[in-house]
């Protein structure tokens, strides 16, 4: 995910402090991976340098200096372009899983056991996400569903590969 574009987008509703940006980001998008302050400030200084945000005011009531950021017209254009541009469909061809399966076959280890263990781990994760989905609000449901569909796709690949192991063995380790 592009943190820069996301923070920019959050600024469209009005100027905010770095701390406020972090909190809103974590609340809406950062369930599993909240931002570090360092990430926020390095991102904001990059956006500032590129003219996508500007400093709207500085406060320093007693504590350290706090900058308030506002999005610029160039920033708005940037968000528009990001949203309009489809994400590159990743084929994940040389995935770790594929590498592990081939390596197991090459070294005479059990690729079937490896696939079974992976399948089991995937299903366990799917169970956790399903549970979270059941208890969560609509936002949780959509986030979990996205992860679930991806895990499901992996699982189907695992099953297909398990069914073709003999064939694959002949190809990679003749």
């Amino acid at each position: 995910m592009s943190i820069g574009h996301t923070l920019l987008g959050l600024l469209e509703s009005g100027p905010r402090h770095g701390y406020d940006l972090k909190r809103t980001f974590d609340e809406k998008f950062g369930q599993d991976r909240p931002l570090h302050y360092g990430q926020v400030y390095s991102t904001m200084s990059r956006l500032l340098k590129n003219g996508l945000v500007e400093v709207d005011g500085v406060e320093s009531e007693g504590g350290p200096e706090r900058k308030r950021y506002a999005i610029t017209d160039a920033g708005i254009t940037d968000v528009t372009q990001w949203l309009a541009q489809p994400e590159k469909p990743e084929p994940y061809l040389q995935s770790t899983l594929y590498t592990k399966v081939v390596l197991a076959l090459l070294t005479d280890r059990s690729a079937a056991d490896l696939l079974d263990a992976q399948r089991s781990a995937h299903l366990r994760m799917m169970r956790i996400l399903t549970d979270r989905k059941r208890k969560g609000d609509l936002a949780d449901q959509l986030i979990c569903d996205h992860a679930l569909f991806h895990l499901e796709a992996d699982l189907r690949w695992l099953e297909l590969t398990a069914a073709r192991l003999d064939q694959l063995a002949k190809v990679v380790a003749p």
Binding site: D116, R119, S120, H122, L123, M126, R127, L129, T130, L148, F149, L151, E152, L155, R156
Partner: peptide, 13 residues
């Protein structure tokens, strides 16, 4: 379907 199985407590293959 894995997504259906994910509603279970345990799975058997």
């Amino acid at each position: 379907e894995a997504r259906v199985a994910a509603y279970s407590d345990r799975d058997v293959t």
